[in-house]
């Protein structure tokens, strides 16, 4: 439905919301971190940021016509039709998963067109196929129906979509970064789904008038002096893109001192977060941040910066604790890593 009449709002022009922007950049550097959950009020720029991220991300090489965006011809699934031999450059896919979407649309189903018109049993890939090697964005993720949530959990875990229905038996890779957003006042998210997100950030409308006015001003300029506005900000976005690409390179050579590993474990132990996933994500995010800042090794301050977003949603919820999980992470941070 989206027309390309106008470029999305530039990522670097988003005012404030540093946590959200940092989290998104980190997943762009290392998709293995595993997605971002953005919780906050309406109209705080959640969707804007995701769409801006799509425009910011570096392009990927894909086989032309491949339904799952494979990088090489031999990786294309055998059921795919109309796959060319050429490799083309495409923007990183950012696929919207609308609420109330049917299971068929998500996982794919029998291609009823082809079945009816040609009598062929063919597979029509769904959203998960399109999101492979890219981003899957779920707005209002907390209102998503349970059976779709179950389905996503399974695929996000295995990185593979398996369809066994209507006489079809199909599997294809489905590795994507899950980006969810929602308003916590409208419902909580199941802990199992929370856990699937690598990072979680809370956004709120800016409370001071100056920031708010600046948001309005930039948005107004974007709408009414579009070309001029984009001209100002496009170089900033390009700079950010280069920085992300450089960080991806640097990530391979980045050193992780033993002390940082120790800090990671001590922090997670103090917080009592379940399982080791928290520690792994924490470390990956800290490494990505260090790479983004152009450091040669991870430092404790990187760890401290990403700890709230990597851990706050993994804590056992204590409903009687008024302060919330983010404050608990901060408290433990102050105690464990002075």
């Amino acid at each position: 439905m989206t027309r390309t009449a106008r470029q999305p709002f530039p990522f670097s022009a988003i005012v404030g919301q540093e946590d959200m922007k940092t989290a998104m950049i980190l997943t762009a550097i290392d998709p293995g971190i595993g997605g971002v959950l953005v919780f906050g009020d309406r109209g705080t720029g959640k969707s804007t940021a995701v769409r801006a991220l799509a425009a910011l991300l570096p392009s990927i090489d894909v086989v032309e016509g491949c339904p799952v965006n494979s990088p090489r011809r031999d990786l294309c699934p055998d059921w795919a039709q109309g796959v060319a031999d050429r490799i083309v450059t495409r923007p990183t896919p950012v696929v919207d998963l609308p609420l109330g979407v049917t299971e068929d649309r998500v996982v794919g189903a029998l291609d009823i067109e082809r079945a009816l018109t040609r009598g062929e049993k063919a597979f029509e890939p769904g959203l998960l196929a399109r999101a492979n090697r890219g981003y899957l964005y779920i707005d209002e993720v907390n209102l998503l129906e349970d059976h779709i949530v179950d389905l996503l959990l399974d695929v996000a875990q295995s990185g593979e979509n398996v369809v066994e229905r209507e006489g079809l038996s199909i599997r294809h890779p489905a590795r994507f970064v899950l980006v969810g957003s929602g308003n916590p006042e409208e419902g909580e998210l199941r802990p199992q789904l929370l856990d699937r997100f690598g990072l979680s950030v809370e956004v709120a409308s800016p409370k001071d008038i100056e920031t708010r006015v600046e948001v309005i001003r930039r948005r107004d300029a974007y709408e009414n002096q579009h070309d001029r506005f984009m001209k100002t900000w496009r170089p900033m976005d390009a700079g950010l893109r280069n920085q992300i690409l450089a960080a991806r390179e640097a990530l391979q050579k980045l050193k992780t001192p033993g002390a940082v590993l120790h800090d990671c474990a001590a922090l997670c132990l103090a917080l009592g977060s379940d399982g080791l996933r928290g520690e792994l994500t924490l470390l990956r995010a800290a490494r990505a941040l260090a790479a983004f800042e152009g450091e040669a090794a991870v430092h404790r301050r990187h760890l401290k910066r990403v700890a709230p977003m990597a851990l706050s949603h993994r804590l056992r919820r204590d409903p009687l604790d008024e302060a919330g999980s983010a404050a608990r992470v901060d408290r433990s941070l102050a105690e464990v890593l002075p």
Binding site: R42, G43, T44, I209, R212, V213, V215, I216, R219
Partner: peptide, 24 residues
């Protein structure tokens, strides 16, 4: 824009869509 933003804040309107739309 400043006036509309300030009033929206004073009215407890969360989010920034409202002042943007009002400006428009």
């Amino acid at each position: 824009g400043e006036h509309l933003t300030a009033v929206a804040l004073a009215l407890g309107i969360p989010g920034l869509r409202a002042p943007l739309l009002a400006l428009r």
